[in-house]
Amino acid sequence: MAKAKAAGRYKGRKPIAPELRDAVLQLASLGTTKVSIARQLNLGEATVYRILAAAKTTESG
């Protein structure tokens, strides 16, 4: 992986669109379940959990 990074081929995970992230946070604040959020926005459940966890650490830190 270090070789690929050095050659400019490895760039990591593509960022989530800010609009989707905001939609996840808004739906979560309304009490929508994580599974339901994922289905409504056509995201994976892990993505929803990752967005919420990042927001929580940003909020507390």
Score class of each variant (00 low, 15 high):
residue 24 V to P: 01
residue 49 Y to D: 08
residue 21 R to E: 15
residue 19 E to C: 03
residue 6 A to W: 03
residue 7 A to G: 06
residue 26 Q to N: 09
residue 55 A to L: 02
residue 53 A to V: 05
residue 4 A to M: 14
residue 24 V to K: 01
residue 16 I to W: 01
residue 43 L to N: 01
residue 1 M to V: 13
residue 6 A to E: 15
residue 61 G to C: 03
residue 38 A to C: 07
residue 47 T to M: 06
residue 28 A to G: 03
residue 40 Q to T: 10
residue 7 A to W: 09
residue 5 K to G: 04
residue 23 A to Y: 02
residue 44 G to N: 11
residue 41 L to N: 01
residue 43 L to P: 02
residue 6 A to I: 12
residue 45 E to T: 10
residue 38 A to G: 06
residue 16 I to L: 15
residue 23 A to P: 02
residue 22 D to L: 05
residue 41 L to Y: 00
residue 31 G to M: 07
residue 36 S to W: 00
residue 34 K to E: 15
residue 7 A to K: 15
residue 54 A to F: 02
residue 38 A to H: 03
residue 2 A to W: 10
residue 14 K to Y: 05
residue 2 A to Y: 08
residue 31 G to H: 01
residue 43 L to D: 02
residue 9 R to W: 15
residue 10 Y to P: 00
residue 10 Y to Q: 13
residue 42 N to R: 14
residue 19 E to L: 05
residue 57 T to I: 10
residue 56 K to R: 14
residue 14 K to W: 02
residue 24 V to C: 06
residue 47 T to C: 05
residue 12 G to V: 11
residue 58 T to F: 07
residue 58 T to Y: 04
residue 19 E to Y: 03
residue 41 L to K: 03
residue 27 L to E: 12
residue 21 R to G: 02
residue 1 M to D: 12
residue 4 A to S: 14
residue 37 I to M: 06
residue 7 A to D: 14
residue 30 L to Q: 15
residue 23 A to R: 14
residue 18 P to M: 05
residue 18 P to D: 14
residue 31 G to C: 09
residue 35 V to Y: 06
residue 54 A to S: 13
residue 9 R to Y: 09
residue 37 I to Q: 04
residue 2 A to I: 13
residue 11 K to M: 05
residue 32 T to S: 07
residue 41 L to R: 03
residue 9 R to A: 08
residue 61 G to S: 07
residue 14 K to D: 10
residue 32 T to E: 11
residue 52 L to N: 04
residue 51 I to H: 00
residue 4 A to T: 08
residue 17 A to F: 04
residue 61 G to L: 05
residue 46 A to Q: 05
residue 12 G to N: 09
residue 25 L to R: 08
residue 7 A to M: 15
residue 39 R to I: 03
residue 10 Y to S: 11
residue 50 R to K: 09
residue 13 R to T: 10
residue 53 A to Q: 15
residue 26 Q to S: 09
residue 2 A to S: 13
residue 43 L to I: 04
residue 56 K to T: 06
residue 30 L to K: 12
residue 16 I to F: 13
residue 56 K to S: 06
residue 8 G to E: 12
residue 35 V to P: 04
residue 44 G to Y: 01
residue 36 S to R: 13
